[in-house]
């Protein structure tokens, strides 16, 4: 793989995050490569979700959260005053641990984002976006005959794919996933993992996962965090077969504790 040809989607530079007096992240430096899956792993409270939420400024809603350093998306500082956060979040979508479809129809769930971003002029635009997004999320065949049914009536795995369809409906560049499979059964998990693999062709994906096997399966780059520090960042293949850092090794082999 000629890695140096792949562009940096994100450049995280010397990022420190505080929740009030408590520092959650220390001097984080990470490059997220375009059209790759980057996995963030580490024990609970290590800061991996905090970093994920910095990438689309989800931490803005937490008053006590303060961040220093630079997070550049395509070279542009996303914390700069010039950035419109709503626009940023359209470029950087998010999928959460628990599937959280709106209490609306399947159709409306998908078309909601494109509507508020003014992407729909005619109903046919919406139809097209719904079909494409659901197809990309691998859900179309299962729901095409009941687009008017409530999204909340789907199975957990289907709901999560609906949320992914909703996230990609606004044509984002990046999808952030916060433990997207932790509430799903193994088959639904396999479907999401297969989907992640397909989605990386079009999107850049950053995933937080507690399953190391999942990180090993779906990602090309893995970052291991511990106590708010980035301990090791490298090719996933290397991290899981031959990590350079003892802490990483202890964690991924189940020795940490």
């Amino acid at each position: 793989m000629s890695e140096n040809k792949i562009a940096n989607k994100y450049q995280v530079r010397d990022v420190n995050v505080f929740y009030g007096d408590k520092q959650a992240l220390f001097n984080i430096e990470v490059d997220v490569l375009e059209n790759q899956v980057t996995a963030l792993i580490g024990p609970s409270g290590c800061g991996k979700s905090t970093l994920l939420r910095c990438l689309n400024r989800m931490n803005d809603v937490i008053d006590v959260c303060k961040i220093s350093g630079d997070i550049l998306l395509d070279g542009q500082d996303i914390y700069s005053k010039k950035i419109d956060v709503v626009e940023l979040r359209a470029r950087v979508g998010m999928v959460f641990q628990k599937p959280n479809p709106f209490p609306k129809s399947i159709y409306d769930n998908v078309v909601y984002g494109p509507k508020i971003h003014g992407m729909i002029e005619h109903k046919s635009d919406g139809d097209e976006i719904v079909e494409t997004s659901l197809k990309r999320a691998g859900l179309w065949e299962e729901v095409k005959d009941r687009l008017d049914s409530p999204g909340t009536g789907l199975s957990g795995g289907q709901q999560q794919r609906l949320c992914i369809a909703r996230a990609i409906a606004v044509s984002p560049e990046v999808i952030l996933m916060d433990e997207p499979c932790s509430a799903l059964d193994p088959i639904a998990t396999a479907r999401i993992e297969e989907l992640i693999d397909e989605l990386k062709e079009k999107f850049t994906i950053v995933i937080v996962t507690h399953s190391m096997q999942q990180a090993a399966r779906v990602s090309q780059k893995t970052a291991f965090f511990h106590l708010g520090k980035l301990v090791e960042f490298g090719d996933t293949d290397q991290i899981f077969t031959n990590p350079h850092n003892q802490q990483t090794q202890d964690y991924i082999t189940g020795r940490y504790g």
Binding site: M212, Q213, A216, F240, T241, N242, P243, T248, Q249, I252, T253, G254
Partner: peptide, 9 residues
């Protein structure tokens, strides 16, 4: 066990 790293090797 789905061993990783040193254990896998």
């Amino acid at each position: 066990r789905q061993p990783m790293a040193l254990d896998l090797r």
